[in-house]
């Protein structure tokens, strides 16, 4: 029993649902810019939804809606009651609700991005909310940040170091950041971006790979009308 009325209308193992991707990192590091760049790069090939966790106001959601990178209705904003990290880690109920609302309204989807409201270095997404997570740092915080580690830097599936265009201005040594990050991340990937000036093609490629991997791991239990015999989500 349970399966009949289950509004978590996908099996707990994730079969038949979109990959949920968390984008975390400190305020101002470029999470919203990256989200927008990913929507731009992937919107043509993947069916997308976005959940933002604004700390105050619905600025991020509004920015994304205005940016015209995605159907505005596919962007939902979640209020986090002063505690952005609580909403992505300890009490994920409102975020899960938003993700499922998107899947219900627009599903099937291939990818739902959840942007956090901005955290300190200890914040990570709960595995109950997302399947993969990206942690976004920027160079302006100084090149020591990766060395300081913290769960965001060490455990994220992908570490993005953004605003490389500013490195000369703030005197940040990208080589040092790369080396330190590699040391604390035990081989997990690190990408350097300047989202504002160059977009995020490499990150988009990584995300696409994750989506493919996810859909192969979680072969769709029921037909979602993709016309692919193995549930491949890309329908470009």
């Amino acid at each position: 029993m349970g399966a009949v009325h289950d509004d978590v209308h996908h099996a707990p193992d994730g079969r038949g649902r979109a990959l949920r991707l968390g984008i975390g990192g400190p305020v101002g590091s470029g999470k919203t810019a990256l989200t927008a760049a990913l929507c731009r790069a992937l919107g043509g090939s993947l069916r997308l939804g976005v959940v933002t966790n604004d700390i105050y106001t619905t600025e991020d959601a509004d920015f994304l809606r205005r940016a015209g990178v995605l159907d505005p209705e596919r962007i939902l904003a979640v209020e986090t009651g002063c505690c952005p990290h609580t909403a992505i880690r300890d009490d994920i109920a409102a975020n899960v609700d938003a993700v499922e609302t998107l899947e219900e309204r627009f599903g099937p989807l291939d990818l739902v991005i959840v942007e956090s409201g901005g955290d300190n270095l200890t914040a990570t997404f709960s595995r109950g909310l997302v399947d993969r997570q990206i942690f976004v740092l920027d160079v302006s915080g100084g090149d020591k940040v990766p060395r300081k580690g913290g769960p965001g830097v060490t455990s994220a599936d992908l570490l993005v170091v953004n605003k490389t265009d500013l490195a000369p201005m703030v005197g940040a040594d990208l080589g040092v950041m790369d080396r330190d990050a590699a040391a604390v991340r035990q081989g997990k990937p690190v990408l350097f971006t300047s989202v504002r000036t160059e977009g995020a093609a490499e990150v988009a490629a990584w995300v696409t790979e994750q989506v493919h991997e996810w859909s192969h791991e979680h072969e769709h239990g029921h037909d979602h009308g993709h016309g692919h015999d193995h549930g491949h989500p890309v329908h470009a």
Binding site: V78, E79, T80, G81, A87, D91, I92, A93, A94, D97
Partner: peptide
Amino acid sequence: SRLPAGSHAHS
């Protein structure tokens, strides 16, 4: 209050 049912965001 730590029950993860979303109440933390309601005032």
